[in-house]
C-alpha cells in the first residue's frame, strides 16, 4: 500500500509540474523512491519512461519542423481551393501582412510570413503553423478599408503566434513523433523510423487541416485571435474598430449554414460582443485618405 501510494505521488507530482522540469524532478523523485525501498528499480524506470512521454509537447517542435508542417498544410489548402493569380493583390497582401507581422508577438518565423489570395467567393481564411496565410476573395470583399483587411490578416497572424494549428495535433501523435525524434541522440534512427516519422507527419497534417478546414478552432481560440488582432492593429496605428466593421459586413454577406466561416467560426455578432465584453472600445472612424487610396488601387477590382 505504502509502495503504491508513493508510486502514485511521484506520477501525480510529474503531472503537476511544467514540461521543462518534469523529467528532472521525476528522476530525483524516483531515485529517492528506489533508494528508500518505496518502489522497485523497475518501477522507477517505468515512471521515468511514462513521464518522458508526458513531458513531450508541441513546444518541443522546432520552428523548422513547424515550417515543414505548414508547407504541407498549405499544399492541402491549395489542393482544395485555387490560388488567385493576381500579382497586384498578392503583393499588397504581402506588404500589409509583413507590416502587421512585425508588430506581432512573433515577428520572426523559420520561413517568414507569406500571404496569398484564394480565388473563392466563400468567406474564409487559413493560417498554417509555417506562416502561410490564405485569404479568400469573398473575405477581401468584406473589407471596406485597409484597416479592415489588416484586421483579417492580423487575426490569422494571431492564430500562428498562439500556435492554434499546432495545438490541433492529437496529443498521442505529438508524443509518438517526438519520441521517434528523441531516438536520434541514441543513434538508433533507421528506415522504419523514417517511415513512422513520415506517418506521424502525415497524421499531424491531417489533424491540422481537419480542424482548420472542416471543424474549426474552438470559440475561445477565435476570440483569442481577435484579441491578438486588436493588439497588433493598435501597435501599428490602425483603427482596431475596423475588425468590428469587417465583422458587421461579414454578418450581412454570410450565408446561414454555408460552407465557409459560418461553419468554422463563431458568429460575427458573438465575436463583436466578446470584444466589447473585453472592454475594447469599437468606435468607427473614417480611414485616412492615403490608406483608402492605396487599398482601392490594390484590391478595388475585387470589391
Amino acid at each position: 500500500m505504502k509502495k503504491l501510494s508513493c508510486y502514485a505521488i511521484i506520477l501525480a507530482l510529474a503531472a503537476m509540474i511544467g514540461c521543462a522540469a518534469v523529467e528532472t524532478v521525476t528522476t530525483i523523485a524516483t531515485d529517492v523512491g528506489v533508494q528508500s525501498g518505496a518502489i522497485t528499480k523497475a518501477q522507477g524506470e517505468s515512471i521515468r519512461k511514462s513521464t518522458q512521454a508526458v513531458s513531450r509537447s508541441i513546444e518541443d517542435f522546432t520552428p523548422e519542423q513547424e515550417y515543414y508542417i505548414g508547407r504541407s498544410v498549405g499544399a492541402i489548402v491549395l489542393g482544395k481551393y485555387s490560388a488567385l493569380s493576381d500579382a497586384k493583390v498578392n503583393a499588397y497582401l504581402n506588404l500589409l501582412g509583413q507590416t502587421l507581422a512585425m508588430a506581432s508577438d512573433m515577428p520572426e518565423l523559420f520561413g517568414g510570413y507569406h500571404f496569398l489570395a484564394l480565388d473563392l467567393d466563400d468567406i474564409n481564411a487559413f493560417a498554417t503553423p509555417g506562416g502561410h496565410i490564405f485569404v479568400t476573395r469573398g473575405l477581401i470583399r468584406c473589407c471596406k478599408t485597409e484597416d479592415a483587411l489588416a484586421a483579417v490578416l492580423a487575426h490569422e497572424i494571431g492564430h500562428i503566434q498562439l500556435r492554434h494549428g499546432m495545438k490541433a495535433i492529437e496529443k498521442g501523435r505529438v508524443t509518438e513523433a517526438l519520441t521517434i525524434l528523441a531516438q536520434e541522440s541514441a543513434k538508433s534512427f533507421g528506415s522504419e523510423d523514417v517511415i513512422k516519422l513520415t506517418q506521424e507527419f502525415g497524421g499531424a497534417i491531417s489533424d491540422i487541416t481537419n480542424t482548420m478546414i472542416n471543424n474549426g478552432y474552438s470559440r475561445v481560440y477565435e476570440y483569442n485571435a481577435d484579441a491578438a488582432s486588436v493588439t497588433i492593429l493598435k501597435r501599428i496605428g490602425y483603427n482596431h474598430a475596423a475588425l468590428a466593421d469587417m465583422l458587421n459586413v461579414m454578418a450581412k454577406q454570410m450565408k446561414p449554414g454555408g460552407n465557409d466561416f459560418a461553419k468554422t467560426h463563431p458568429s460575427p455578432q458573438s465575436r463583436i460582443a466578446e470584444l466589447k465584453d473585453s472592454g475594447i472600445a469599437l468606435t468607427s472612424i473614417e480611414p485616412s485618405a492615403v490608406r483608402k487610396e492605396r487599398f482601392i488601387k490594390a484590391v478595388g477590382h475585387l470589391l
Binding site: 507590416t99 501597435r235 501599428i236 485616412s288 492615403v290 492605396r294
Partner: peptide, 21 residues
Amino acid sequence: EQVEDFIAGGNLVFDAEGGNQ
C-alpha cells in the same frame, strides 16, 4: 525598407498603441 515606406505612406506609426488614426 518597403515595410518602412508602407508604414510612413499610410500615416501609420510602429508601436503606436493608440489605434484610431
